[in-house]
Every structure is written in structure tokens, then in C-alpha cells.
């Protein structure tokens, strides 16, 4: 050690100063994370299908309910049916759902354990997603009320009201709910394929939304196609006064 004390202090403070300057640089994190390619999403779906469970393990729920909740619409109740006779388990629906709803990729270690964010999963050779239960077990245990039910039968999710307690995920009998363990945007694992659907923050639960955004757009289209009827103010176009 040829340095005397003064030189040592000088060099230490220089190093400290360089460290501070480096830390103060203005580089946004979002700029660092590149967007993933479509091919990565396709590969992940293939991986998920290879790791999927071969049998359907559902929890027995004694009395799944009808939609007899107060305020239920008498006009609509939406759902989604899958014709299992026609389904050959190819998994294209999973990729389509991921692209439509901007479902993020997961890091490699989660993928290795089979913990994907896909809203639709292959179970026992058939696709399974949220069943939008009438008396949904997830909705009644959400502490903030972020999981709730629309009058026309969708089990909806308010991301901004979610505090991430994961009680809903624990209580789902079909294990259809996914939790955002990672900040997908920061890690470069999310891509906003569809501008109509927001990207979710870290720490919130998500699940099949029955493409609520498409339902809303279709409602709009339906209303515009109906000819204007001056006498009937409720259902159709009304000129603004």
C-alpha cells in the first residue's frame, strides 16, 4: 500500500462521487425493458400446454347458485360455452385470449413451475377459465369489493380497487384466478396488443373477463343500428336538445 491517508480519502470520495452521479442519471426504466415478441407468447402457450395437468381436479362446491342476486338483469345473462365434442385441445384459444387481453408473460422460474398468467388453461384436455359463478366464492371474500358481479352475469374485476390480498384466488374452486407477482411492464414481459384493455399493475388479481370490452363495443354497435324512433326515447338515438 503506497497510498498515504490523504490519497486514500481522496480516492474513496472520488469513487463515492462517481457512484452518486451514476445513480442520479436519468434513464427511465420503461426505456430499458423491450417489448416481447409474438413468438415468445406462442412459445409460452406451448410450454403451458405441455405442463398442464392431465386430469381435471375441481373442488366440490355443494350448492353452486343461480343468478338470483338482487339487481340481476331480467334481459341478459352472459356466459361462454365450449363444445367439447368439437374441441381438439389445440390451444389456439389460449393464445387468442392472451393477445386480446394483453396477458403478460412470466419469468422463466415461474414458467418452469407451471405458474402462468394465462386466463384460459388446458385441464384434462379441455380449456378451463373463470366460470362466472352465480354465487361466486371469490366475490364474497374480497375484502375491498374489487371482485363483484355485473347485473348481466359477469364476474367483474376492478383492478384499481384491488389491494392484493389474494383471498379470491385462494377461494376459487377451479383455481381460475391469476395474481400479478411481477411488474410485467418493468420486466419487459407485457405487451399491449389490444389498446382497449389496460395493462395490469403489479400486485393485483386478474382473470377471464368474458371480454367485457367487446360486449360494450357490441352494445354500442347494436344501439346505433336500430333506427331512431322519436316516440321511444329510451332505446335509440336521440338528438341532443
Amino acid at each position: 500500500m503506497g497510498m498515504d491517508r490523504r490519497e486514500f480519502i481522496k480516492s474513496c470520495s472520488l469513487v463515492a462521487m462517481m457512484g452518486l452521479l451514476f445513480g442520479c442519471r436519468k434513464v427511465s426504466l420503461e426505456a430499458l425493458a423491450a417489448e416481447p415478441s409474438l413468438g415468445q407468447f406462442e412459445d409460452e402457450v406451448k410450454l403451458a400446454m405441455s405442463l398442464s395437468k392431465k386430469h381435471l381436479d375441481l373442488v366440490r362446491v355443494p350448492m353452486p347458485g343461480m343468478l338470483d342476486i338482487p339487481g340481476a338483469s331480467s334481459v341478459n345473462r352472459f356466459g361462454m360455452a365450449i363444445d367439447l365434442d368439437l374441441c381438439n385441445g389445440c390451444g389456439k384459444c389460449i393464445l387468442a385470449c392472451n393477445v386480446e387481453n394483453n396477458v403478460p408473460l412470466v419469468p422463466a422460474e415461474d414458467a418452469g413451475r407451471g405458474r402462468f398468467m394465462h386466463w384460459v388453461e388446458m385441464r384434462g384436455g379441455a380449456p378451463l377459465m373463470c366460470a362466472h359463478c352465480g354465487k361466486a366464492p371469490c366475490e364474497r371474500v374480497c375484502p375491498t369489493g374489487a371482485a363483484n358481479h355485473t347485473p348481466d352475469g359477469l364476474s367483474a374485476m376492478m383492478y384499481k380497487r384491488c389491494t392484493g390480498s389474494r383471498f379470491c384466488g385462494a377461494n376459487c374452486p377451479v383455481q381460475a384466478r391469476k395474481f400479478n407477482f411481477n411488474d410485467a411492464r418493468k420486466l419487459g414481459l407485457a405487451r399491449q396488443f389490444n389498446k382497449e384493455v389496460p395493462l395490469r399493475d403489479k400486485g393485483v388479481m386478474e382473470k377471464c373477463s368474458l371480454c367485457l370490452h367487446r360486449l360494450q363495443d357490441d352494445r354500442l354497435k347494436f344501439k346505433r343500428k336500430v333506427p331512431a324512433c322519436p316516440a321511444d326515447k329510451g332505446a335509440s338515438l336521440v338528438c341532443a336538445a
Binding site: P143, T144, C162, T163, G164, K202, G203
Partner: peptide, 12 residues
Amino acid sequence: MHLGVIENFYMV
């Protein structure tokens, strides 16, 4: 500390 979004704890 186990909440996913700790800032929203008051909503409980």
C-alpha cells in the same frame, strides 16, 4: 406486508 398493493390497505 403481505398485500400485493400495500398502498390500498385502507380499503379493507
